[in-house]
Design a binder for these strands. Structure first.
Lengths: 202, 202
DNA sequence: CAAAAATGCGAGCCTTTGCTCAGGTTCTCA
DNA sequence: TGAGAACCTGAGCAAAGGCTCGCATTTTTG
């Protein structure tokens, strides 16, 4: 059970390669042509496979897109988790810097794919997965805030984590799309870090 | 030239009502059923009009959606503009509170329509309009920051305005969709205000 | 009150697209 | 090695949806 083919599990190496090719082709189409171009026939063609093969592993288009969503979402989650762990015990500004760097990295990697998947998610039941990841990150940050009661000001840690997560994510997202040049200078990152630390420290 | 019908301008009151009905029906479908349900035939039916009439004022579906985008975007812009003006000379935290209240108001008004239009915009050339509004708001805020050099810390006003705008917008957006209960208590708004003021004052 | 202009109608054409199915090829395993 | 399982193929079906076109109705104009 690799990507989430409800219909049939690929057993031989050959078929696993097929599934892989299909998913890759779908991703390529999304990033190169946008989601209006994502037809099952086109995916099959780009993957170098026939439509029939596609429908052997994905019961319908929705399942294919959902699989793509999950794969991408999980990748993001794992990277953020890791960044958090590696900085957990350090000073606040370093934690902020590390995690924000992780988010920039995540966003800069295939921004168009990310964008198009966000548009597709609601039509495909991919929002729950995404919200779950967001909430995991928020919970992580809330735990971090709660674990340093002296250092941070008062206020519900959950709510504060919510604000910080959404703020940072939006700023990074916006910068990737609208001000890519800013991401190359360090000043932007530092400005975001100070936004977070000033708020948390009060 | 009321909503942007490239094809023909409605001259009689009757036809203006038709255009109005079409736009309203489209909005209703978007908020009630989502954008996959937005077919031109359905819009016409819901509007109590025939498809032919629809195509008399909108050259194609894209134009219809674009008109809807513009109408909505301009509404948002006007409200934010107004909020800004009415608070311009007051203390920072009051300005922040006023403008943020405006954004909450804007988002709470037809959140689903807003959401679906955001998904449609890229496919319809509606992003430029939207970015233009965002940039106007950013410029407004940048001007505000630049006009009080002593009160705020250093740093490029444009960049700081960018961060504040995106942060606030995302937090409000997220709250509307994921934590609607928080919007009813005052604490959330105050928390957002302090996020902004702490950052700006340094 | 015509004639002309503006508006409205909706059956149906035509393209697109998700998906099936009947039949072939490759692989596994006893 | 041969039989059965796994895998692949792609022409084409059926549904959906954007849009047209010939004609009817209403409003304006002279």
């Amino acid at each position: 059970m690799k990507p989430a083919p409800i219909r049939k599990s690929p057993r031989q190496a050959r078929s696993q390669a097929t599934v892989e090719a299909i998913l890759t082709a779908a991703a390529r189409i999304l990033t190169r042509e946008g989601f209006e171009a994502l037809t099952t026939n086109r995916v099959a063609t780009v993957a170098g496979v026939s439509v029939g093969s596609l429908y052997q592993y994905f019961p319908n288009k929705e399942a294919l897109v959902r699989a793509l969503c999950e794969r991408h979402t999980h990748g993001v989650r794992d990277r953020i988790r890791q960044r958090f762990q590696e900085a957990w015990a350090r000073p606040v500004d370093e934690v902020a810097r590390t995690v924000i760097e992780g988010m920039v990295e995540v966003r800069r990697h295939e921004p168009r794919l990310h964008q198009e998947l966000l548009r597709l998610a609601p039509a495909v039941g991919g929002l729950e997965e995404l919200h779950a990841v967001e909430q995991e990150v928020e919970a992580l940050l809330a735990g971090f805030i709660a674990s340093r009661p002296g250092e941070f000001g008062p206020g519900d840690p959950e709510r504060r984590a919510f604000l910080v997560c959404h703020a940072v994510q939006a700023c990074v997202h916006g910068a990737v799309l609208e001000r890519p040049a800013w991401l190359k200078e360090d000043g932007f990152l530092e400005e975001l870090v100070s936004l977070v630390t000033r708020y948390l420290r009060g």
